[in-house]
Structure formats: C-alpha cells, structure tokens
C-alpha cells in the first residue's frame, strides 16, 4: 500500500518530537532526528532514539542533514516557538518547496508560524486537551475513536487519488455507494473544480470526480486494499455491470 519510504527530518527531541519520530519509524519512513540542545539530545538517546546534535542556526548544518537536499518533509517540533520560527525561516530560505509541519506552543503563534513558511501547523496541546475533554463529556465517542481509528489499525482513514484512467473518473460521488460495495465510508473529497480544500461529504453539492481529485474514505484496511486493487485492475466500475 505504501510507496518507497520518505526521507523525513524531525527537529526537536522533546516528547512530541520523540513520539512523532517513533510513529514515523513504525510506518517505515526513513527518519533523521536532530536537535541542538545537548541535554535534550542526551535524554532522547537514553530513550533509544538516534539523535544528531547540530547547530540549528547554521544553514550548512541544516543542508547536511538533508534540508534542501533530499529530505521529503521537515517536522519543526522544537519546544520553543521562537526557535521554531527561526528554523522555519532558515529552512524555507534553503528549500522553498519543502513541506514543513510545525507545532505551536501558544495559540497566537500559529499565524506567525504560517507566515514563517510552515505548510501545516499542529497544536499538540489543543489536540491533547480536546481529547481529554472528549473523554470527560463524550466518552463513548472517544472510546469508539480510540478503539477504531486511532487504535491498532482496525479502521483506516485513507485517501484515494482519482486518475484519468481509473473507472472513478467522470462518476458522481453519490452514485458510487462505496459503503455497500466495499464497506468504505466516504468522508470527504478534494474536488479540483472547487479548489484544493477538503470538502466534507455532507456538502449539498453533487461532486463529479475527475482526474486529480482525491477521495478520503474510512474503512477496514482489507476493504481499502480491495478497492485500491479494483481501481488499478478493473476497467469499469464494478457496480455498472449490475445496475
């Protein structure tokens, strides 16, 4: 299902950095961890992470670990917002097109991190806080999500790229009925006619799929694999024969 491993640079060996690196490695990506604080580096090393200590303010050092030179994606996960902004600006100057994901400590810095060149900013504290709140007040939903989507890969949220050649091309979203045929629920779609944003499937418009569009579906891994397989091999939509 996954293509060749991506080269990921994770900057920051704080708890968030370690967790991200751990999960990326579990997914089989090629991860390079760096940080400039000796104490943090030592701490991460005792936990079994291979962290390289470099000077983050030195552009050559950044290039050496792969930024602007081979890295597919950069995670700027330093504990301190100012350091993150500095790192983002340095990295953006070296590699204008590199996707960069960063974290914000305080809410107000999100805008600044985007201005500094982040592709995506995650607020780890808000996510964690909301999770705890959810466990308090919507415990059943939280439990279900934990058990299915965020559990050990029972249900996957995955994306399907529509190509010109696939049988999805030219179909309307509502005539696919993927939930019956494949046990997959369509959550949303990126319809290039309406821009590059994800549109949730509850949108009242009818969406026609064309090449370049992306479907986001949720379902068991084997159902997803079956669907992916059908897209690649079948000429026509399997449903057409019956209907």
């Amino acid at each position: 299902m996954r293509s060749t491993p991506k080269k990921v640079v994770v900057v920051g060996s704080c708890p968030v950095g370690m967790e991200v690196a751990r999960q990326l490695m579990e997914r089989g990506e090629s991860v390079k961890m760096v940080d400039d604080l000796k104490t943090d580096v030592e701490k991460a090393r005792t936990r079994g992470f291979n962290v390289e200590q470099i000077n983050l303010q030195d552009d050559d050092a950044l290039r050496r670990v792969g930024i602007g030179d081979g890295a597919d994606i950069l995670f700027a996960l330093l504990d301190d917002d100012a350091s993150n902004v500095f790192l983002l600006i340095s990295a953006r100057a070296i590699a204008p097109n590199l996707p960069i994901v960063s974290i914000s400590g305080v809410r107000d810095t999100i805008v600044r991190l985007y201005a500094a060149g982040a592709t995506k900013v995650i607020d780890p504290y808000r996510i964690s806080g909301y999770k705890i709140y959810e466990h308090m007040h919507r415990s059943l939903i939280a439990e279900t999500l934990d058990r299915t989507v965020f559990g050990r890969g029972d249900l996957d949220i995955a994306e399907i790229h529509v190509t010109e050649k696939s049988f999805l091309h030219g179909k309307y979203l509502d005539e696919l009925s993927l939930s019956d045929r494949y046990n997959l629920i369509v959550l949303g779609v990126v319809d290039r006619e309406y821009g590059d944003n994800l549109i949730f499937a509850t949108d009242p418009k009818r969406h026609k799929l064309d090449g370049g569009d992306v479907l986001v579906v949720i379902g068991p891994e084997d159902a997803f694999a079956q669907f992916q397989h059908d897209i690649e091999t079948e000429e026509n939509f399997p449903g057409d024969a019956h209907s």
């Binding site: 991200v20 995506k120 995650i122 944003n197 986001v216």
Partner: peptide, 25 residues
Amino acid sequence: LEPFKIVGLIAGEYVGQPVAFEAIH
C-alpha cells in the same frame, strides 16, 4: 491518555496522506 501519541499519529499521517490528514485533524 498519552497526549502526544495522537499528535504523532496525525503527524505521521501527513507524510503519506496529506489529504486524509486534514480529515483526521
């Protein structure tokens, strides 16, 4: 709860599937 586990999960999602990431996020 492990607060950063979920952060790691969605961050990891971004590497392979940036669109699905939006939905999860």
